[in-house]
Write a protein that binds this DNA or RNA. Sequence first.
DNA 1: ATTCCACGGGAATCGGTGGCAA
DNA 2: TTGCCACCGATTCCCGTGGAAT
Length: 356
Amino acid sequence: MITQPRVFDDTHLPRRLLHREQAVDTLARAFDPTLRGDRAEDILLYGPSGVGKTALARHTLDRLERRADVHHSYVECLGTSTAGVIRAILQDLPGPDPASNTPLEDLDLAMRDRVDDPLVVVLDEADGLPDAGTLSRLVDVTLLSVIPICHDPDDWLARVDDDVRQRLHGHEYGLDRYGVDELADILEVRAHLGLAFGSASRTQLERIADDVAGVARNGIQSLRAAAEIADERGHSSIHDEDIADCYERARRRIREANLQSLPFHHHVLYELIRRAGELEAGQLHERYEAVADELYHGRDQTPIGQRSRRNKLDKLQEYDLVAADGANQHRRYVVIDEEIDSPLLTNTLDILTHHQ
DNA sequence: ATTCCACGGGAATCGGTGGCAA
DNA sequence: TTGCCACCGATTCCCGTGGAAT
C-alpha cells in the first residue's frame, strides 16, 4: 500500500506548504533586504513541536536561494556548543574548515572574516544551546541574521544576552497546531504521493488529524502506521480499525527510536526501571550499584556516579521513556511502555533480576 | 524546628583527539 | 617522532533548594 515511503520521512519537504501562506510571506519579507545586499531581519520562530517550524524555515530559504544568490546556514543546536555553532556556519562558507582544536576566538575571527555577503543562519532547537552567549557572537557579525527556532519565546529571550534580546524583541513569529481541515489537507497530499490510490478516505484523514490534535508530524507518522497495519491485516485500503491501532504504533516507534539513540548508561537505567515496573530513586541507585560491575564488565565504559545518573534519568524523561513523580526521597520512576525493551540488554535478564 | 534526601545548576576535572612546532 | 597545547564531551564535585517525615 505504501508506494513511496520517503513521503513519510520526517525530513521530507513538500513542494508547497499548505496553510502556512502567511508564515511564508512573513519570512520572505524578512529576507527582502538581502536582495539589496543588506542584512536580513531576524525572526524568532516558535511553536509546539511537530507543527512545521523547521519545514517552514527550510522551505522559505530554499525559495529565497532559488530567487537570488543569498546563502544560508542551517545549524542543529541541540547538544552543541558555541564553537560547534560557529564551526557549522564556517562549513557552509567557502574556505577551508578550521582544525578541531582551533580556539573559539579564532573561529569567531574567521567567521567575521568570511561573512562578506548577507547570510541567514537558522538555529534549530535553539532551546538546546547550553551557552547563553552563543547568539551574541553571531548577532555581532555585520551581515549575519539569525532565525532561532524554539518552543517558548519568552523563556528563550529571558536566557539570552541583552543585545540578542533587543534584536529579536518584536520579531517573534509563532506557529500553532493545524486545524482539522488544514491537517487533513496536508495528509491528503501525503496519501496521494505515498500511498496506493484510494487507500484512505477524506473522513479517515480528518479523523487522524483530529486525533493527533493538529500536530502534523504525529499525523503523518500515524497515517504511515495505519497503512502498514492495513497491509499486515491484508486490507486493500485503510480500515477504521487500522486507524484505531495506528497511534500506539506511531508513538511506540518514536520511543523505540529515542531509546536506540541513547548510549549504554541510559539503557542500564531504563532496563532497571522497566523490569521493576517502578522504582524509588533510592532503590534505583542501590540496584544500579549492585549490578553495575557485572554489567559494565568487558565494556570500555565504566559505571557512573549518582549525579550523572540523574542527568541520564532526565534524558529518559525528555524522551518519554520513563516518568517520575513524587518529591524528595519518595521520588518514583515509572516505565511508560513496558513493551519497549533495550536491545542492548536482552541477554542480561539474569544479572538484572538476581539482585532483587 | 529540624533532619533527611533527591534534585539540579554550575565549576572543576578527566580522557581522548588532533594540530603544530621543535 | 615527540611533546605541548587547545578543544570538547562526559563526568564528578560542591552546594543551595525544598518537600516530607520526625
